[in-house]
Amino acid sequence: MKSLEELNAIRDKVRDTVVIPDGSDKIRVVVGLATCGIAAGAKPVFNAIVDEVEKAGLGDKVSVVQTGCIGICQFEPVVEVFEGGKEKTTYVKMTAEKAQRVVEEHLKGGKPVVEYTIGANLN
């Protein structure tokens, strides 16, 4: 790294893939793959989402990445969906089967699967 300009150029290039801007049709899906998430079964969930996104032909639109712990241990495995200009959707206590439905209905169909979200699982 030679200069701040070089660093800023990388930042500006990547920024939109991490923080989806308003009006973009891209979707970012993050799966909590820290020790606690993995212990709770997050790996098969991650794999299922990657496979289903591929199968549904959403590869260009949806990026699926691993991430660290967001802190809600008892709700693991946790999957979050980021869309441009919208509040993120937090899916909790996920399984590979639930992940299939999220890909089908939310990522493809545009309609969040309300019953798997944190809002529906608070109590």
Partner: peptide, 22 residues
């Protein structure tokens, strides 16, 4: 934590990473 991919340095930089070092 829970936002970026920890294995991607680009994603860290996207969130103003290494700007302080710079």
């Amino acid at each position: 934590c829970g936002v970026i991919d920890p294995e991607s340095i680009e994603e860290y930089i996207a969130m103003d990473g290494y700007a302080a070092l710079g």
